[in-house]
Every structure is written in C-alpha cells, then in structure tokens.
Amino acid sequence: MNIRPFLFRITALFLCAFLGVMLFRGIAAMPPKESVTGPAAHYLERASRETGARNVVGAILFDYRAFDTLGESTVIFTAVCGISMLFSRRKFHRSSSGLSFIAKRGIGIMAPFLIMYATVIILFGHISPGGGFQGGTIFATVTVLLCVVFGSSFESSYFPPKTKESLESGGALLFCGIGLVGLAAGTGFLSNLSAGFPAGREGSLLSAGTIPLLNIAVGMKVGAGLSAIFYSMIKMLDTTNDYREGGPIR
C-alpha cells in the first residue's frame, strides 16, 4: 500500500483550505460599500455622454481602456501565431470528406444566417450587448462548423488560411491605425471623440466615434484568429485520428 500520494493530497487539501481561509479573511476585512465609487461610478454616470456609446461595457472596453483591449486581442494574435507555428511543421493535404448529406445541407442553409448574426453583433456592439470579441467568436464558430461538417479542405477553399491571416493582421493594423489617428490629432493614442471622431446621435448605428470601427477591427482579429487556430488543429486531427483507416467498423 502506497500512502505517500494520499498524504500528499491531504496536505494539499489542508494547504488549499488554509489559503481559502486567508483569502476570505482578506475579503471579509474590507469595509462594506454602500454605493459604487471611484472610476466605476464615473463610467456609469458619464460613459454615454463622454463616448457616445449606449453600451457602457463597450465604452469601457473600446474607449476608456481601449489599450487593454489592444493588448487582449494581441494575446489572441500571439496565440494564433504560436499555434500555427507549432502545427505548421507537417503539411497535411488530406481532409475528411465531412459528414452526411443531411448535415451538409442543413448547415449549408444555416451558415449565412450565422454569418449575418455575427456581423450584427459586431456592428451593433456600441448600442446593444455584444461587440467585436463576441461577434468574432460567432464568426469563428461558422468556420468551425464548416470544418467539421464539410471537411477542412472545403473550409479552406472558402476561407483560405491566407485570407484569415491577412484579415487578422488587417484587423490588428486597423486597430493600431485608429489609435494613431488620435496620436496624430494630438489627443493621445486611441482617443475617441476628443480626436474629432463624430459622436453621432446616441443609439444610432453611426455613433460613438471610433468604437464601431474598433469593434470591427477586433471582430476581424478574433474571428480570423480563432478559426485559424481551429483549422490548424483539425488539420492535424484529420490524418492522425482518421477513423476510416483500420477503424473499428467491422
């Protein structure tokens, strides 16, 4: 009987419990807050006036803290770069032929709606909940579906990896370019209304200055990036895990 793993786990459990207690003490010691204070109050009160966006989250993400968003989307860019670097060693040309006719036709009917949905979420990011990250993810879902249902070669013939790459880089460059406009106007990197972008009428599609543009840029970046990640991974799966080769069918 080996007792060491058991002891190890028990000790780890006690450690974690102790840490939990310590961290909870940290939370419990904070004085209770009656109202929102600090920057949060400022955002809630004045976001729509200062940025022209009705979606406060969008205003924080793409205006007050747009630099963080640049960073976050760059994380995705880095991950995409890395995953395609790690999976790029072997060239796979064969792809699975996809699922059955029913699935293919069904997804074929659905896909345009999905793309439309993604576009709407991106474009209306400053008015309603949503935005570049969410819309981009949905767009990536479309390509994932196409990959699974039709096979990766079909997907790559519709959305070639090069297009994805250029879309991704284009989105990133667009983001930086919009930021540099603010820099050129002398009001600071990624500045919105103060750099002279039109505020528009609040709640309309063309409003909130740079926020829709940044949404589009992030949508391009995220959508293309995530689908590129999935593409490079399924390319690997297609051959390494091909169930038709000596698979368990009879």
């Binding site: 699922l99 059955s100 009917i109 249902v149």
Partner: peptide, 22 residues
C-alpha cells in the same frame, strides 16, 4: 425554427458517428 432545424441535424450526425465508431 432554428431549433427545429438544427437539433435533429446534430442528433443525426451524433448517432451516425456513434454507429461508425462501432
């Protein structure tokens, strides 16, 4: 409408995959 269109397709693909998997 979307639910009625997609859910059967998904189940179809799932059961087919199960069958092929033995």
């Amino acid at each position: 409408g979307f639910l009625m269109a997609t859910n059967p397709i998904a189940s179809h693909a799932l059961s087919r995959a199960c069958y092929r998997h033995g």
